[in-house]
């Protein structure tokens, strides 16, 4: 009985996710005249791949794709590396609670300050560093958001870790780096995977920073998606096609990271 309800609940949840996404895919292969029909067109009378063809034919799409990929890979890589290390450092430094709270607080303050009001000064900083219209400007801007998040997330995880786990390694004379990489990291791998997934998603879709410091060579996919909304209406078909194109790499990444998430869980279970 329980497993039946369990199954039904999960099926409903999956439907709530899949139906809108399926509709997005259908929209990407619909003819323009079938977008606003009453009732809505669920099965298009004619399937068209023109929206995808247009995207592929446009050289700019390829460049946006490369830029988005560069930004996401760097942002995720640097964030996970520095954020996890920083969290471990903060957790093991035996700082007084007040100082620890203060450092975390500064990080979070920077994380949550409305970016809208720092767009112009950030633009000036990037101009000073001669980084305008480069992917580095976007990456640096995004790191200001992602590193504090990952640091805090991992800080909570490290603090919850029983100290006995490391004691044996300390007694064996392992260095901090060895303790971190060989003992602690495998155990917290599920959380690291989750943080990496979240960071990659955020970076891939981030719009405001990208649009304010990179509008020409370094433009990215999220800006391209927004550009289908103009002052006189929405180009539904191309927008849907672009959204689908944007989703695919992230699904691949999520599957990949999930594998690590699982491995981390099983490893943790063996260890624990």
């Amino acid at each position: 009985m329980y497993s039946v309800i369990h199954g039904i609940v999960l099926a409903v949840a999956c439907l709530v996710v899949i139906v809108p996404l399926g509709y997005l895919i259908i929209n990407s292969i619909k003819l323009p005249r079938e977008f606003l029909t009453i009732p809505p067109t669920i099965l298009p009378t004619e399937v068209t791949f023109e929206h995808y063809q247009d995207l592929i034919d446009d050289k700019k799409t390829v460049r946006y794709f490369q830029n988005s990929l560069t930004v996401s890979v760097w942002t995720t890589g640097v964030t996970i590396l520095t954020g996890t290390l920083a969290a471990y450092g903060l957790a093991r430094m035996r700082l007084s609670a007040k100082i620890l709270a203060l450092v975390t607080f500064i990080f979070l303050f920077i994380r949550f300050y409305p970016r809208v009001t720092t767009v112009i000064p950030f633009f000036l900083v990037m101009r000073q560093l001669d980084l305008l219209d480069t992917v580095w400007a976007i990456i640096i801007g995004q790191l200001g958001i992602t590193i504090p998040f990952v640091t805090w997330l991992m800080l909570v995880v490290f603090q919850d870790l029983p100290s006995e786990i490391e004691e044996a390694a300390i007694v064996d004379g392992a260095s901090v780096w060895q303790r971190f990489s060989r003992v602690v990291l495998p155990i917290v791998m599920p959380s690291v995977s989750a943080a990496a997934i979240l960071t990659a998603f955020l970076s891939w879709n981030e719009f405001l920073i990208a649009s304010s410091v990179a509008r020409r060579k370094a433009s990215v996919l999220s800006i391209a998606v927004a550009s289908f909304v103009s002052d006189k209406g929405i180009q539904w078909g191309p927008m849907a096609a672009m959204s689908v194109v944007m989703i695919v790499p992230m699904i691949v990444f999520a599957l990949f990271a999930q594998k690590y998430l699982i491995r981390g869980i099983t490893f943790g279970a063996v260890k624990g």
Partner: peptide, 18 residues
Amino acid sequence: RTTLILPMVIAPVAAGTL
């Protein structure tokens, strides 16, 4: 699980339009 985290993957501006 992979299915359920999909909505997060969509660019918010596209999700709003969808």
